[in-house]
């Protein structure tokens, strides 16, 4: 009944000690955000667009290789993209404008370009995020966000989510076992009458736990601000390593704009 090593949130993490693993989390956050911004800023309808997107893909795959994140792991990470894919697939059919024939079906040309762009941008950004998640533990990510001056309240909320995801998950699991031990099977619509109150009681339990945690915090002198530990300085070399990804992407974009 114990959660897997690292817990439900830690499942995305791939324990290893590659150069990417060793980078400070806030550097990786900046790198991924920068990369995604460059990707999103790249036009989809220029002649050189496809070359640029190919360059980005090469960069992110290089980063994944350096981090020791295999193709299977990347593909699994892409699953989160599925709703966007469905939306993108609709675009060529619903968009206006001149039509082109693809495999005997007339589809909107602008819709096709928009769908391709959406897919490419989403896939590249998700790939970068998968590398980040696979090389950074959840709590390190929160520390990175704190280091990047995300408002303290948001950092605390995220921190508690990381800490209590497994505790709440464990409660959910015990409630499920207790239900099923008394013959419950949640396979028909009537099950909602049971599952609804169960969700409600999980909410109430979590709310009460929140109150108890707050009491425990107050008892140890909490005054509304999370006391931070010492922040270690990051060598310039690490910044350079981390920024290779967004700077490389920016170079690809710049050469496209200048040469294309």
């Amino acid at each position: 009944m114990t959660a897997v090593h690292g817990g439900v949130l830690g499942a995305a993490y791939l324990a290893a000690s590659s150069p990417v693993h060793r980078l400070a989390p806030h550097l990786k956050l900046v790198a991924v955000l920068g990369f995604a911004l460059v990707v999103v800023a790249t036009p989809v309808d220029a002649a050189w667009s496809w070359a640029a997107y190919g360059g980005y893909l090469a960069l992110v795959l290089l980063a994944a290789a350096a981090a020791g994140v295999g193709p299977a792991r990347l593909a699994r990470g892409l699953a989160i993209e599925v709703p966007f894919v469905l939306f993108a697939l609709l675009l060529p059919f619903v968009a206006q404008g001149p039509r082109v024939e693809v495999a005997g079906i007339a589809v909107s040309e602008s819709g096709l370009v928009a769908a391709g762009g959406l897919l490419a941008k989403a896939t590249l950004s998700v790939l970068a995020a998968v590398v980040l998640a696979a090389t950074t533990e959840p709590r390190a990510l929160v520390q990175g966000l704190e280091r990047l001056r995300l408002p303290s309240l948001l950092v605390q909320i995220l921190m508690f989510m990381v800490r209590y995801a497994d505790v709440v998950g464990g409660e959910l699991g015990r409630m499920r076992v207790a239900r099923e031990s008394r013959g419950f099977q949640g396979r028909h619509l009537g099950a909602l009458k049971v599952l609804g109150p169960a969700a409600g009681s999980l909410f109430v339990r979590s709310y009460e736990r929140g109150e108890r945690v707050h009491l425990a915090m107050l008892s140890r002198g909490y005054t509304g601000r999370m006391p931070g530990g010492p922040a270690t300085a990051v060598p310039a070399q690490d910044w350079l390593t981390a920024l290779t990804l967004p700077l490389g992407a920016a170079a690809v974009l710049a050469s496209g704009l200048l040469l294309g």
Binding site: R139, M159, R163, Y164, R212, A216, S219, R220, G221, P227
Partner: peptide
């Protein structure tokens, strides 16, 4: 500081990501 209350459920008491940070929470406050 003078009264150290240890609550019944350690999951309520240990709210920081690691043991060390949790033990440091009070002194840092």
């Amino acid at each position: 500081r003078r009264v150290g209350i240890v609550f019944q459920d350690p999951d309520d008491q240990l709210f920081m990501p690691t043991v060390g940070e949790d033990v440091a929470f009070g002194p840092r406050n």
